[in-house]
Structures are given as C-alpha cells and as structure tokens.
Amino acid sequence: NIFRLLGDLSHLASIFILLHKIQTSRSCRGISFKTQVLYVVVFCTRYLDLLTFQLHSFYNTIMKIFFIGSSVYILYLMRIRFRPTNDPSIDTFRIEYLLGPCAVLSLIFNYGYNWIEIPWSFSIFLESVAILPQLFMLQRTGEAEAITTHYIAALGAYRALYIPNWIYRYLTETNGVDAIAVVAGIVQTGLYVDFGYIYFTKVLQGQKFELPA
C-alpha cells in the first residue's frame, strides 16, 4: 500500500540525508551518537528472523540488511572516521532509562516467549523512544543545522505515514491489528509533533531552526 511504501522510502531518505550530512560537512556535529546506537540495537533485535532464513519477501530482506548495515556504518563514521567532531558532552541523555523499561515491557507484552518475539517486541518499544536523545540534544543546543532538521523530519514523516498504513490495512485486510506496533507507533509519532511544528513554521519558511527562548 502507498502509505507503507512512502513511509519506508521516507525512512530510507532519512538515512541518506544523515550520510550526506556527515560526508559533505565531514562532521557529525549535532547528531546524537546515543540515538544512533539505539537504532543499531533496534534493527539488530528486530531482524533476528534473518537468521532463520524463513524470509518474508525480497523487499523486506533487502531493507532489513540495509538498515542494519547503514546504522552500523553511521556508528563507524561517528566513532572512528569523524570522531573529533562528535561532542559527547552535549549528548547526555541517560539511555539506561529507555533500555530498562523497554526490556520490562517486552517481557510483559509480546506475541510469544521465544528468542524472536521478545527481542522483536523490545525493538518496537525501543524504536518508539530512540529519537529522544537526539531531541534532547536539540533542546540543549537550542538550534540545529538545516540538514539535521531534514533528517529528523524525514524520520518523523516515516513514522507519521505508518499510521494511515495501519488504518488502510485495518480496512482492507482481515488479519487484525498488530496492537504492539500500533500503540508504540502512535507514541513514537507523538514525540515528533513538537519538532514537526517548528520544522514547518521555521525551516520550511527558510528560517533557521531555533527553539524559542
């Protein structure tokens, strides 16, 4: 369906925007390393089904491999290649407070007690909050380069598009609703609302991304 496809393309776009930003400016300034670590954890725990070789579709498999590979590559760029441009002193969100509750939630809410379903559920909860260190960093610095805001906006668009995708699927399929993914997805989209408002009213009007004092 079109919403799902546009959502996935938007997700892909966000990764290319981030890579472009790091490589053209030769700097990862303004990007939260912690958020990027969380995305690696999210992808690695969600796509454990790759190891079973009972793959859903060619499209899914390629995308999963791309998401794992690109997120690890971004960590390499931030930690090794452009390490001096990464300032840990403003990236101070405590990710333990995200990992712990997500682990507990995944043990309570999951579709089966096994080595695929529990990590899958964990990854869904973790993805919903993985952007928080990035948004927190943005709030601390109070401003951001336009390209960094495009990256976050593309991620927000990807999440927003998954909502009409679920509505469409609910209306056209008889499989029922994936409650865990939908609830966590709505929470995740909600986290972008504030950012999205400033993005639309400032960055897209040609102004600098600056938080009101």
């Binding site: 009972q54 579709y111 029922g176 609703v177 993914a181």
Partner: peptide
C-alpha cells in the same frame, strides 16, 4: 493476528 504470520512490516 499479524504476529502469527511473521512480522511483515519493517
């Protein structure tokens, strides 16, 4: 539910 058929979203 969707889960029984494997997770088909990314």
């Amino acid at each position: 539910p969707l889960a029984q058929e494997g997770h088909d979203e990314l």
